[in-house]
Computed example of a mutant assay.
Amino acid sequence: MTTPEFQIRRATVADVPTILSLIRELADFERLSHECVATEALLEESLFGPRPGAEVVIGQLGSEVVGFALFFPNFSTFLGRPGLYLEDLFVRPKYRGQGYGEHLLRHLASICVERDYGRLEWSVLDWNQRAIDFYKSLGAQPMDEWTVFRVTGDALTKLGSQ
């Protein structure tokens, strides 16, 4: 019996239902389901519309989806070059610990190299020690001296309308 090989491919508009399912699984894992309001229509417009806000790659074994990564370019004024921000990396629980997350991260790093980007960065929840240890094992360094700030919802509307 042969086993299917792991492959990473660029998502297409046909993948939107799968992407939304993975996002919802991630939200459950991160205990943030109450914040997940994405819909297929929003994702189709945001990822595949006239002004895509992000890119998605999907990792799969044969036809079975293992996980995904959603990312977009950012910019480092200090480097004077763009970088890549990884918004979400998710591997389904039954596939964890088998190297698929590492393959996805290596794929993103190769995109950075190919595009001549200066860095690859992302955030991780403080309680997710397994992920923190994994990222450190790959050479990633925590940016402990930085605090993420966010403005959303009514506060964003208020700030933007003044």
Rank of each mutant, 00 (worst) to 15 (best):
A14I: 14
D15P: 10
V16T: 04
L20N: 05
I23D: 06
D28K: 09
D28W: 06
F29C: 10
E30C: 07
S33F: 02
S33G: 14
H34G: 05
V37W: 07
T39V: 06
T39K: 08
E40V: 04
E40G: 11
A41E: 15
L42N: 11
L42Q: 15
S46G: 11
S46F: 03
S46W: 03
L47G: 00
F48N: 01
F48H: 05
P52W: 01
P52A: 06
G53Y: 04
G53R: 14
A54D: 04
E55M: 06
E55T: 08
V57N: 01
I58N: 02
Q60A: 15
L61M: 11
E64D: 13
V65S: 13
V65N: 12
V66M: 08
V66G: 03
F68Q: 13
A69S: 12
A69G: 09
F71A: 01
F71Q: 02
F71C: 03
F72C: 09
N74H: 12
N74A: 10
F78M: 13
G80H: 07
R81W: 01
R81G: 06
R81Y: 03
P82I: 03
P82V: 04
L84N: 02
L86V: 07
E87F: 10
E87V: 06
F90A: 05
R92E: 00
P93I: 01
R96L: 06
R96D: 01
Q98A: 14
Y100D: 02
Y100N: 10
G101Y: 01
G101Q: 03
E102R: 11
E102K: 04
H103F: 11
L105R: 07
H107L: 09
L108H: 04
L108I: 11
A109W: 07
S110E: 13
I111E: 01
I111L: 15
C112D: 15
V113Q: 15
R115T: 05
Y117L: 08
R119A: 11
R119I: 07
L120D: 01
L120E: 02
S123Y: 09
L125R: 13
D126V: 02
D126E: 15
N128R: 01
N128L: 06
N128V: 02
